[in-house]
Write a protein that binds this DNA or RNA. Structure first.
Lengths: 207, 207
DNA sequence: GTCTATAACGGGATAGAC
DNA sequence: GTCTATCCCGTTATAGAC
């Protein structure tokens, strides 16, 4: 493991990512970031102008490769893809980030009411959602387009919440669950979501 | 519809709830709240001491009846409850709030990294999760306790995210989905989650 | 490109009159 | 219980020397 010299811009992005992940965007001040990056306070404004564009840069740095990978996996799965393969193409690239500190941040950004964050997510996620809905409609032809969209939302919710809670699941579940084995968690998530997608489109009688 | 005089404390709670739901906790200042409630700035400190305990009060006012209703429905479903009945007991009381502005707020509070909000949720939700896990284990005896906990987390994630996005689904899905018919959305959500709970506990071979 | 110093502002909370 | 006025702090962002 060789530590190479990193430029100021990258040091800021790294520190910001970590802090945003741990404390959220609002609770993290530029002073926190520059202290963590061991750079001067003014450097962040020099390189990123405003806090908002710093947030944008932090998210884009991770989300763009994720979405590239998602589309790669979607294409690789081909037109006869199984539901599991599609769910994996949606979920795996997010979970397999090499920097785990980004995961809670991405999960949380999903849920933010901030119109600025909303713009970022609409820009980055709506095209992806379109592509995946098409693919799910092929794999599950009996699904209406509306139901398909809803299920993708539910799936994204499960994933996002799991990510944003990843550091807390032990505490929340009284130690029963452990999120450190990310592969196992992903496997559980994929199975849950795939089964949800396969649910009957009409309401079954119950009780 | 008769407007009765409300006391200052309730006016503050109502205004805070609305603003927290629309803008989030951080972005809402006490000045926003007192302006919206048409009360004096100092009144909030007089009645609630700090902003944090105001947040606590706002959440508790809605969450406590929800959890009471959840346990009622759980009890009413009895020991032979179906998976759908259990999921409904978990989801319906949240969705059927008479004040829709609270829904995004509750969904979002789920995802917050704030240790203060975390405390609130651990206090309010862990006992509920315990009770529901017991019930799901009865309805699905082949499920391991760990898998059961994970699935409850996934389910909570779907629900929370759906709530926090409820005002945006139209925009996000290019108009394909409409969240205003809450009953229909709940129905879709229950079906998705129940199917996820029923998924096989072991990984099937795929591709 | 990097630093120090500071401007300009908005926030939560409080003192004290009424 | 309710008000006005204010304190005090941390924040983002910038000006200007190096």
């Amino acid at each position: 493991m060789i530590e190479v010299a990193v430029d100021t811009k990258t040091k800021i992005l790294d520190a910001a990512e970590k802090l945003f992940g741990n404390k959220g965007f609002d609770a993290t001040s530029l002073r926190d970031i520059t202290a963590g990056a061991d750079v001067n306070l003014a450097a962040v404004n020099y390189h990123f102008q405003t806090k908002e564009s710093l947030i944008d840069a932090v998210i884009a740095r991770r989300l763009e490769p994720v979405n590239r990978r998602r589309l790669e996996m979607l294409t690789a799965a081909g037109p006869n893809a199984t539901v599991e393969q599609l769910v994996e193409a949606f979920v795996l690239p997010v979970v397999q980030q090499d920097i785990s500190s980004i995961l809670p941040m991405m999960g949380r950004a999903f849920a933010s009411p901030d119109p600025f964050l909303l713009r970022i997510f609409k820009r980055n996620l709506i095209p992806i959602a379109d592509r995946f809905c098409e693919a799910f409609m092929v794999a599950l032809p009996q699904l209406s387009p509306e139901e398909c969209r809803w299920r993708l939302l539910f799936a994204a919710g499960s994933m996002a919440q799991t990510l944003s809670w990843s550091q807390l699941v032990g505490e929340i579940t009284r130690g029963v669950c452990d999120a450190t084995d990310r592969e196992a968690v992903t496997d559980r998530l994929v199975r849950f979501v795939a089964a949800g997608f396969r649910a009957s489109d009409v309401r079954e009688g119950h009780a």
